[in-house]
C-alpha cells in the first residue's frame, strides 16, 4: 500500500518538476525573498497572526512566568538582572553573536544557556526542553516585526563562511545540498508541500508536524534526516554557523516569532 502510494508520489513529483519552469530569484532586481509564512495557506496564516489562536503564545506565556522565577545558586531570576522583558527588544534579531569574553558565536538559545549557567549558576536546561524554548520564545517575541539585523562583527565572517559551505555541500544518501532545494527549487512542490526559501525568521516555531514549539536546530535536524544525512551532534558548532549564514541571507526580513509552520 505504502509502496504503491510512494510510486504515485514519484510520478507526481517528476511530472511537476517537468512542467514547472525554473523560477528562482531574478538577480539584482526586486527582493524576491519570501518567508515560509507566505507559502502557507490562509488558515495557517490566520493561526499565526492571531495571538489568541497561535498555540506558540502558550509558550510565550510560560516564558513570562519563568522570566520572573529565581533559579540556581545565585538565586536570581532573569528579571533581577534584566528588568522588564522590554529590555530584550531587538535582541533576537541580531543573534547568533559573539558574547563578551568569548571568541566564538552562540545563538539565542546558547546565550540564554550562558545566563542560566554563568549568571544564575543553575543546571543547564537541555536543548529542546520546554523551559528553554519558552524563555527563548518570550525573548524572541519582543523582536516580532523587527528586521533581521546581524551584527557588524568581522569576527563572525569565518563562521558565516563555514555555514555557507555547509549550505552548499551535497550530503546524505540522497546527495542533496540545502541549496538544491531551498535556492534552486524553492516555490516548487515536493509531493504537495511547497519548498520554502528556508528563512529563519519565525523561530522558535510552533510546527504542526511536531505538535509543539521547537527550535531552528530541530528544524535543521529534520532537513538533515530528510536527505538521509547523519545530523550533527546536538552541541556541534555547525548549527550556529548555518544559522549565521541563514540570518545574513534573511537580513532585513521581519521576525515573526512564534511563527506557525506545517
Amino acid at each position: 500500500m505504502t509502496f504503491v502510494r510512494g510510486v504515485l508520489c514519484l510520478v507526481i513529483v517528476l511530472a511537476s518538476s517537468w512542467a514547472v519552469a525554473q523560477g528562482t530569484a531574478d538577480k539584482g532586481g526586486a527582493d524576491t525573498r519570501r518567508s515560509g509564512y507566505q507559502d502557507m495557506g490562509e488558515a495557517l496564516q490566520k493561526m499565526q497572526a492571531d495571538d489568541t489562536a497561535n498555540p506558540g503564545m502558550l509558550f510565550v506565556q510560560l516564558g513570562g512566568q519563568l522570566w520572573g522565577k529565581a533559579a540556581g545558586a545565585a538565586g536570581k531570576s532573569c528579571a533581577d538582572c534584566h528588568g522588564g522583558v522590554a529590555s530584550m527588544k531587538g535582541v533576537a534579531a541580531r543573534y547568533p553573536a559573539i558574547p563578551k569574553g568569548s571568541d566564538s558565536p552562540v545563538d539565542l538559545e546558547g546565550r540564554i544557556d550562558l545566563c542560566r549557567t554563568a549568571n544564575q549558576q543553575a543546571d543547564r536546561l537541555p536543548s529542546g526542553s520546554r523551559e528553554l524554548l519558552a524563555l527563548e520564545a518570550y525573548v524572541a517575541h519582543q523582536s516580532r516585526g523587527l528586521p533581521v539585523s546581524p551584527p557588524d562583527d568581522p569576527r563572525l565572517a569565518p563562521f558565516r563562511a563555514h555555514g555557507k559551505d555547509l549550505w552548499q555541500a551535497r550530503q546524505g544518501q540522497l546527495n542533496l545540498s540545502c541549496a538544491n532545494c531551498h535556492d534552486d527549487n524553492a516555490g516548487r512542490k515536493l509531493a504537495g508541500v511547497t519548498i520554502p526559501q528556508a528563512h529563519p525568521t519565525g523561530y522558535p516555531i510552533y510546527r504542526l508536524e511536531w505538535q509543539t514549539l521547537g527550535s531552528l536546530k530541530r528544524r535543521l535536524r529534520n532537513c538533515l534526516v530528510g536527505i538521509r544525512a547523519e545530523p550533527y551532534a546536538y552541541d556541534a558548532p555547525d548549527y550556529v554557523m548555518l544559522e549565521l549564514f541563514l540570518m545574513d541571507r534573511a537580513r532585513g526580513m521581519p521576525l515573526e516569532s512564534p511563527a506557525v509552520r506545517p
Binding site: C9, L10, L14, S17, L174, L176, C181, N185, R228
Partner: peptide, 16 residues
C-alpha cells in the same frame, strides 16, 4: 535536474 527531481521524490517516498 531530472536526477535531482528523482532524488527528491525518493526522499518523499521514504518518509511516508
Amino acid at each position: 535536474r531530472f536526477l535531482a527531481g528523482a532524488a527528491v521524490a525518493t526522499m518523499v517516498t521514504t518518509v511516508l
